[in-house]
Amino acid sequence: MATSVTVKDVCPQEFIATYARFLKKTGRVQIPKWVDIAKTATYKELPPSNPDWIYYRIATLARKVYLRGGDGVDTYKKVFGQNRRNGVRPNAFAVANGGNIRYCLKQLANLKVVEEDTVKGGRIITATGRRDLDRIAKQIFDKKNKQ
């Protein structure tokens, strides 16, 4: 009998990596020209070392919207934020750049994975997005059980 597998049932790192590879392979995500020079936050000194970082950020946001819908860009700026190093002064928390997050959410909306919640605000997962993410989670689960 077939079991129902959701995103919650698989390892987050494996899911994000698999979904990022899927997004890159399909070619439906439009990558901006600034992706190779953009930093993910103002407190970072360098851009990400992984050239496919935008796919991983999109996959991470899809998973986060799946698990807890209704959050907006400001919430995700806090989620991806870190401590800013202030030299000899104490570290202080700083939020991530909202432009990257907003762009990733727009790409997910173009893919019909997420949509804006008109009642409460923020982003929620669509039925198509839930089906696609659960399908990828099922593939990961079956591959892991086969081994």
Score class of each variant (00 low, 15 high):
125 I>L: 08
112 K>A: 06
77 K>P: 01
109 A>S: 13
62 A>L: 08
94 A>D: 14
81 G>H: 08
131 R>L: 15
98 G>H: 05
91 N>M: 08
56 Y>W: 07
60 T>M: 08
63 R>F: 03
120 K>N: 13
121 G>N: 11
75 T>S: 14
66 Y>D: 08
51 P>F: 11
86 N>D: 05
83 N>M: 13
53 W>I: 00
73 V>G: 09
106 K>A: 10
55 Y>R: 00
131 R>A: 15
49 S>I: 10
122 G>L: 13
97 N>M: 12
48 P>E: 14
60 T>V: 00
51 P>L: 13
89 R>G: 04
109 A>L: 04
73 V>I: 15
117 D>V: 01
93 F>S: 03
113 V>S: 06
135 R>V: 00
77 K>H: 07
116 E>T: 08
98 G>V: 06
134 D>Q: 10
125 I>E: 05
112 K>L: 03
134 D>R: 07
37 I>E: 11
135 R>S: 12
77 K>Q: 15
69 G>F: 04
64 K>L: 14
105 L>V: 00
130 R>C: 09
105 L>H: 01
65 V>L: 11
51 P>S: 14
116 E>L: 07
98 G>I: 02
93 F>I: 01
102 R>W: 04
104 C>M: 13
76 Y>L: 08
67 L>Q: 12
120 K>R: 14
133 L>H: 04
124 I>W: 06
47 P>Q: 05
65 V>E: 11
43 Y>G: 01
87 G>A: 06
129 G>R: 05
106 K>N: 14
65 V>T: 12
96 A>P: 02
78 K>W: 12
129 G>E: 04
128 T>C: 00
82 Q>G: 15
95 V>L: 08
94 A>F: 03
79 V>A: 14
118 T>Q: 11
42 T>I: 02
60 T>D: 12
101 I>D: 06
108 L>V: 06
38 A>F: 03
50 N>T: 05
88 V>P: 01
65 V>C: 10
104 C>Y: 03
115 E>L: 07
58 I>Y: 12
46 L>S: 10
56 Y>P: 00
120 K>W: 09
94 A>M: 07
61 L>W: 02
132 D>Q: 15
41 A>T: 00
77 K>Y: 10
66 Y>H: 09
87 G>V: 03
66 Y>F: 15
134 D>N: 15
67 L>N: 11
122 G>K: 09
91 N>C: 07
76 Y>S: 05
64 K>F: 04
123 R>M: 10
65 V>G: 07
112 K>I: 00
93 F>C: 01
67 L>S: 12
48 P>I: 02
47 P>V: 04
112 K>H: 13
65 V>F: 07
80 F>K: 07
54 I>D: 06
76 Y>Q: 06
38 A>D: 04
93 F>K: 05
102 R>E: 07
94 A>K: 07
70 G>D: 01
39 K>I: 01
117 D>I: 01
